[in-house]
């Protein structure tokens, strides 16, 4: 087929060339913290691309079971596709296992394998999975091609590099000579997540508008929403 590529002399700045790019950065930040018997996971509610904000009320949290919540951001169409396929598989599992819910660690591995399946055309997403398994809180994070690692706390998305150091300091107590002993309660974890998002909204244009926080305990998942700066 004839196209402008066959006529290099016409490839000047004036000639409009449309180049299709399958990826789009829709921004968004996600944070999760695991406690002894709970997990807290939060995501901002802004959907944007470049300098445009599409919507200010957009959930990036996906409740998969009564004890697992996934947060996904990056290229929204990839997140959308990946999470809906994952939700289908989670449902399929319970339908073929006498309504038993799939466990958190099984979801963690399933997601990793699914993401690696697209090794050569990756889902451009940042995923964090949080939940409880056998009474304990866990957080799993992923790179775009499915490298999965377990953590006690993790930040991902557009301001991951801004948020992770706060968590390293407040929860990881990294490189401190005298480590304070503050117990990590649900309330403190929720406050920390909220605070990190307030900081991110201050410095990252792709993060803001609001935070959705899911608190996962043995009693199920509780959702909260906190407003953020809308600029």
């Amino acid at each position: 087929m004839l196209g402008i590529n066959q006529f290099p002399e016409y490839q000047v700045p004036g000639a409009v060339q449309h180049q299709f790019n399958p990826y789009e950065n829709n921004g968004g930040s996600i944070v999760a913290i695991a406690g002894d018997n709970f997990a807290v996971i939060g995501a901002d509610t802004r959907l944007s691309a470049g300098y445009n904000i599409f919507t200010r009320n957009h959930s990036k949290l996906f409740q998969l079971t009564s004890s697992a919540v996934l947060a996904s951001c990056g290229n929204w169409c990839d997140s959308d596709t990946l999470t809906s396929i994952l939700q289908t598989r989670v449902r399929q599992y319970s339908d073929t296992h006498e309504n038993k819910e799939i466990s958190l660690n099984a979801i963690a591995q399933l997601l990793s394998t699914m993401m690696y399946g697209r090794r050569f055309f990756p889902y451009y997403v940042s995923n964090i999975l949080a939940g409880i398994y056998e009474g304990k809180g866990y957080v799993y994070s992923y790179d775009p091609i499915g490298h999965c690692e377990r953590h006690t706390y993790r930040a991902g998305g557009s301001s991951s590099a801004l948020l992770q150091p706060i968590l390293d300091n407040q929860i990881g107590l990294k490189n401190m000579e005298e480590k304070p002993t503050i117990p990590l309660t649900v309330d403190r974890a929720v406050k920390l997540v909220t605070d990190t998002f307030i900081s991110a909204a201050e410095r990252d244009i792709y993060t803001g508008d609001g935070v959705k926080i899911s608190i996962i305990t043995e009693n199920g998942v509780e959702e909260r929403q906190i407003p953020l700066r809308k600029d």
Partner: peptide, 26 residues
């Protein structure tokens, strides 16, 4: 593994990421 929708993944996956405005897949 599923094949990419383009030929030569070594070069073209790289191009795909190069052409992005502010996307860097690390």
């Amino acid at each position: 593994l599923s094949a990419p929708p383009y030929s030569n993944p070594v070069e073209n996956l790289a191009k795909l990421h190069e052409n992005n405005d502010n996307i860097k897949i690390n």
